[in-house]
Nucleic acid binder design. Sequence first.
DNA 1: CTAGATCATTGGTCTAGACATTTGGCGCCC
DNA 2: GGGCGCCAAATGTCTAGACCAATGATCTAG
Lengths: 263, 263
Amino acid sequence: MPMRLQTESGPFRRLRLDKRAPTPAYAQIADAVGGLLRSGALPPGYPLPPERVLCDQFGVSRMTLRQAMGILEREGLILSHRGKGTFVAHDRLKKQQQELRGFTEEILARGGKPESRLLSFRQVAPPAAAREFFAMAQGENLYEIRRIRLSGGVPLTLETVQLCERLCPRLEQFDLEKNSLYRILERSYGLRLGSCVEEISAELPAAEHRRHLDLPRGVAILTIHRNTYTDSGLPLELTKSAYRGDLYSAIVHSVRRQRTGGK
Amino acid sequence: MPMRLQTESGPFRRLRLDKRAPTPAYAQIADAVGGLLRSGALPPGYPLPPERVLCDQFGVSRMTLRQAMGILEREGLILSHRGKGTFVAHDRLKKQQQELRGFTEEILARGGKPESRLLSFRQVAPPAAAREFFAMAQGENLYEIRRIRLSGGVPLTLETVQLCERLCPRLEQFDLEKNSLYRILERSYGLRLGSCVEEISAELPAAEHRRHLDLPRGVAILTIHRNTYTDSGLPLELTKSAYRGDLYSAIVHSVRRQRTGGK
DNA sequence: CTAGATCATTGGTCTAGACATTTGGCGCCC
DNA sequence: GGGCGCCAAATGTCTAGACCAATGATCTAG
């Protein structure tokens, strides 16, 4: 007897697709299947229905379905093997792209309760480093924001942000103790954050750190310099953060460079 | 007069494709175009020929060409806009995936001259943390390698690596002062590195650090705990590194999570 | 009982089209 | 001169197939 054709899609049976929606079919499929996988309802190694079966179910052609599967595979949610099938990947395989987050988002993601205390908000003449980074013309101004950032009421970092006034004029109208700066930039100025480069280093505490961070003895400072760009590559923000070394550490996900691979 | 159809592919004119080669057409195209872009010969914003022109030139269908373009777009080498065209992206836009590297590779990439001094190479009973990470059975052993790692003759970090003997038996036959551990794992054991998670923190120097790292006064320690996995998600290596804070900092690239997007 | 051939099933690649949507230049009309 | 609409060109999405290559179950010959 030939190998039985798999027709029972099991947990995938109920997934559907709205052909009238403006979102493309492949995105809907990737969202639907991806959501099911991320829910953790299926154990690693659990087989997905064959592509041709899913095509029937969603009512799309195979190329469209494979566009969705490609997204899921790049995210590390599934693993495909020619001749065998496609399977739910192990959790550890999830390709965690290093994610750009502001302090507020980062602390929320870690289960903390972010707060801010504004130390100063000034317009300053740009130092050379900032002038070069932002490609500033003569006479352009820089916003400089200094804040203590807390989690659960404990001072965690002393942060200095520099922003080019050209990109976010009248920034002073916002309350930077109550609002996430990144949210303001995205929502109110339509600046879509794109990427950043951080340099993470270790230092001994200086007087300034002791003054603001309530440092116990025997604690070092984790310093992060961040250069942020918009999604179109425009220099957006320059940040220096001094974290309490005993309360904060940076988590970094890396992947091995591989062959350019399929999908 | 209608808008002139672009037929001059300019710098792209000479790119060709070997239909008999075993590598898929889309990979060849991505390599060829990607190589031209990475060479820096074209300025940011320079327009690529329309997809249909490239299809003709390479002799492939549009879906195949778009598979190649999708790779380049995900790498951040090009930017596409519906209705306008496809353009060379700005350098800053290149999606630098955080890359997993061993010390040797990292120092070479930074233009240094990596060396190692072996402090100890032992088989030890696994501590609880390692037993859990490697999912070790009773009686299994752990390799523990302690090395001073230098760049240009200067001690840079004190590194302790733990490896599960099951995955790389008879590791003691290799000279770990002369060979990159990652190279050994890949070449001699066929273990393909996949990804890692690092926790980066700051500490004050301990006696051990002073003893081995030749520390000047006023220097903190940058500590990196690394959990490494193979490309199939198998736990491979557990490393703790203590870097001289004045000589080393970690560079991290991050990108903003976006809509699942096309291609 | 085993080694090898067969073959259906699977994902990987590719084609030759189609229609949709966005953009921007051009010409027309006021 | 200044809008406004048309339309060609461009990318985005999708189809309904095709063939290839790897896998592994089954069948068959020894």
